[in-house]
Design a protein around this nucleic acid. Structure first.
Lengths: 259, 259
DNA sequence: GGCTACCCAC
DNA sequence: GTGGGTAGCC
């Protein structure tokens, strides 16, 4: 059986908020190392990969592999019941037909308990190869979101070019063109403002802004975001959570005329 | 004639907002003790009872009984003209065919005046018996609203059970089940957070969430709400206004298969 | 008409 | 960061 107590119900709420517009139904795969989720979006352009490590829960207990097939719209409805400081405990049997969610108020005078019906979901196995990216950019997640939403106002696509001079996000649209260029930047006082650009090879790739803006809903989970690029390979956008938990989004580049 | 000056036009606005989805047309019954309203909703499942005491107005003057037959949609349109801090004066003749509403800005540099046509409404007389309820729950109105809207996401009905252990709001729906349990709770620092459960007899009743959520629009009128329950008797949801004015909603329980 | 997402004000 | 309101979409 699974029993996982999350001090901040908020974390799961934010994770689900960030992915529910990409994925409708998916498995939460639970085992003794934690809770994992991998799913393609409907159009098979983007991929979400979440890992909530056991260490992020206290306590965490999961003896066997359990797949929780969840409809994320339904889960959102339940998670909406979580108040800000609530503690969330997830419970499921070994072959569950429902997931039990208990919200406790910090002051303990309110307990909300929900059973969410589960579904069988065919797990398409997603091998995500470990990639050595040609360029890895680390920046404030708010800044990345700002760039994406700003450029979204002009175009449906953004071209991301990383070179030794920095990283340039540019777009062409009917009303004009836009570009934001960032250079490496070390802010000693506010480390979270650092912009860090690693580069082994220049890259230039074009992506759908709609998806990138969508990924940016995960901003609330971390004040940093890591963007990994290699030519002709899906982009990786990574939000690291406490411990070594993470939420990752992959997005295939646009090619040729699509741009 | 009626002349009633309400320092906070807002109060009437909130009252009408809270009931206009239940009742289309109704009489405001004015006499020397104040302005009262009683009306069943269209499906005759819920009943609204409002009392605005003369003391809540300054000045208040009403020599004879006057029934003001008002269409609440029209009244809402007029009240929308009220600014936040406006003072509202209601005026009507003894046998009026219109209601006069004057809004004064607090600073007195703007006066808006409206005449709302009245209608003759057959008053179905509603005797509401005073009931000694088996259980009376007093809680923050925001919390009650929160519970109702949370459970609304899962089901159309909620079962409210009051026992010596506390009060439990539970529901069953297609996507799963939900329950919120509250215990008595005295917050000495913030009295408005108190949850107070009086009980002479355990009760368990099921109600339409749609109506309860509707009642909760009155939340803006008071930070406390009182919920009174007896088996097989309509639920009473009461918002107390300043003075001994009030807005009360009654709702018949669902029985048998309806649940 | 209900729901959702966005926006703004607290 | 939260709640309430509004404006579009289904």
């Amino acid at each position: 059986m699974l029993e996982a107590r999350l001090e901040q119900a908020n974390i799961l709420k934010k994770v689900v908020d960030a992915i529910k517009d990409l994925v409708q139904d998916c498995n939460f795969d639970c085992n003794d190392s934690g809770i994992a989720l991998q799913a393609m979006d409907n159009s098979h352009v983007a991929l979400v990969s979440m890992m909530l490590k056991a260490e992020g829960f206290s306590p965490y207990r999961c003896d066997r592999n359990i797949a929780l097939g969840v409809n994320l719209v339904s889960l959102t409805k339940v998670l909406r019941a979580a108040q800000n400081d609530d503690i969330l405990t997830l419970k499921a049997e070994d072959a569950p037909d429902s997931l039990n969610l208990v919200f406790e108020s910090a002051s303990n005078d309110r307990i909300s308990e929900y059973d969410l019906k589960l579904m069988d979901i065919d797990q398409e196995h997603l091998g995500i190869p470990e990639t050595d990216y040609a360029s890895t950019i680390s920046m404030p997640s708010a800044e990345f979101r700002r760039i994406c939403t700003d450029l979204m106002a002009m175009s449906e696509s953004v071209t991301i070019e990383a070179s030794k001079d920095g990283v340039k996000f540019s777009c062409n649209g009917d009303i004009g063109n836009g570009a934001v260029t960032l250079r490496s930047h070390q802010d000693i006082e506010k480390e979270e403002n650092n912009i860090d650009i690693e580069l082994t090879e220049p890259v230039s790739l074009t992506f759908s802004l709609k998806y990138l803006v969508n990924f940016c809903k995960a901003q609330a989970l971390s004040n940093k975001v890591k963007i990994c690029l290699s030519n002709e390979v899906p982009l990786l956008v990574e939000y690291n959570l406490s411990g070594s938990s993470y939420l990752r989004f992959y997005l295939a580049p646009k090619i040729g005329d699509e741009e």
